[in-house]
Computed example of a mutant assay.
Amino acid sequence: MPKLRLIHVASILLILPTALGSVSLNPAEARSGGSFGSRGSRTFQAPAPTTTAPYTAPVKRSMTPNTVQPATPSQPSLAQPRPSFWSRFGGGLVGGLVGGLLFNGIFGMMFGHGFGGMGGGLSFIFQLLLIGGIVILAMRFFSRSNTAPTEARSFATPFGQQGFGAGAQAYSPPAATGIGASGATGADEIGTTDTDRSTFERILAAMQAAFTREDHQGLRRLTTPEMVSYLSEELADNATKGLKNEVSNLQFLNGEVAEAWREGMRDYATVAMHWSAIDVMRNRQTGAIEKGDPNNPVETTELWTFTREAGQPWLLSAIQETAN
């Protein structure tokens, strides 16, 4: 193979991946944590808003199968943009042009023809620049036509870790504390009682205490098996890092039943919980505080879902962090 042709082929192998890489590669989005647990058939639905928690995203991590079906071609999703003139006509035109240049020009040269005749190497450079210009124009057009607002997402963290690295949420405590009945947009289909709502407050305090003691038996008495697995995983992760979470001086500030419903023989109640507590991470060996403020409490708002079978006590089945 002539030396000039070898140089051309080597140049193509080096330049082509760079020229087209930005079009074909999508970086993976890594996420960790997230709200977790089960809300029965409503696991993947956003809970009803309340004054305590106006918006909360659906559960992100659950053992409950997601039965929500994606939209079919005959029933297009409202979130999908309509095909633009560019995608129907301009895209095909430019795609054909780029394909012709690539296969008749670059790859043709690799097999002994193409980029020949007038210009030689100059034609090769010109066609590469032309391809790059077309790709840039296409990307700019799509970025203007298909730009959509990105949904802000926030994810729950297990007990008491919300205050790390951030100040307390702005909040004016209500004149009276305690969990109220279902908010204006929610529906309490099972008729939760004052006894039920007092039980939800008690589980909040007992859960924080059990998590601080790393009491797995206590967690099993208060939560569903699925929640025990998530909380035990968090405790094991803390231990691996040489840390221990301590939550103390918990004060319940306010709460509302967002929604409550029945599925067969099982009841569910999703409750907006707002409380303050001292929340710190200690070094397991030295006892030194590595995260958190031991003197100033932080305020936290989360949605906790409780479930019970007929005649059985309430158990915690899901935790969701509210949007800031």
Results as ranks from 00 to 15, higher is better:
Ile7Asn: 05
Ile12Val: 10
Ala19Met: 15
Leu20Gly: 12
Gly21Met: 04
Val23Cys: 05
Leu25Val: 14
Asn26Arg: 14
Pro27His: 07
Ala28Tyr: 01
Ala30Ile: 14
Ser32Met: 10
Phe36Gly: 04
Arg39Asn: 05
Gly40Arg: 00
Ser41Ala: 12
Thr43Cys: 05
Ala57Cys: 08
Val59Gly: 06
Val68Phe: 03
Ser84Asp: 09
Phe85Glu: 02
Phe85Leu: 15
Val94Ile: 12
Gly95Glu: 10
Val98Met: 11
Gly100Pro: 06
Leu101Gln: 00
Asn104Trp: 06
His113Tyr: 12
Phe115Val: 13
Phe115Gln: 09
Phe115Ser: 07
Gly116Glu: 12
Gly117Ile: 08
Gly117Thr: 01
Phe126Glu: 14
Gln127Phe: 02
Leu129Pro: 03
Leu129Ala: 13
Ile131Phe: 07
Ile136Trp: 08
Met139Lys: 12
Phe141Ile: 15
Ala148Trp: 08
Pro149Ser: 14
Glu151Tyr: 11
Ala152Trp: 10
Ala152Glu: 15
Arg153Asp: 13
Ser154Pro: 04
Ala156Gly: 08
Ala156Glu: 12
Phe159Glu: 13
Gly160Met: 01
Gly163Cys: 01
Gly167Ala: 09
Ala170Tyr: 06
Ala175Phe: 04
Thr177Gln: 11
Thr185Glu: 14
Thr185Lys: 14
Thr199Phe: 03
Arg202Asn: 11
Ala205Pro: 09
Met207Tyr: 13
Ala209Trp: 08
Phe211Ala: 01
Gly218Asp: 08
Met227Asn: 07
Tyr230Phe: 14
Leu231Asn: 03
Leu231Trp: 05
Glu233Trp: 13
Lys241Cys: 04
Gln251Trp: 02
Leu253Asp: 11
Glu256Cys: 04
Met273Ile: 13
Trp275Asp: 10
Ala277Thr: 05
Ala277Leu: 03
Ala277Gln: 07
Ile278Trp: 01
Asp279Ile: 02
Arg284Ile: 07
Gln285Glu: 15
Asp293Asn: 07
Asn295Thr: 13
Pro297Tyr: 00
Val298Phe: 09
Glu299Asn: 11
Trp304Cys: 02
Phe306Pro: 07
Ala310Lys: 10
Pro313Val: 01
Leu315Met: 08
Leu315Cys: 05
Ser317Val: 04
Ser317Ile: 04
Ile319Thr: 12
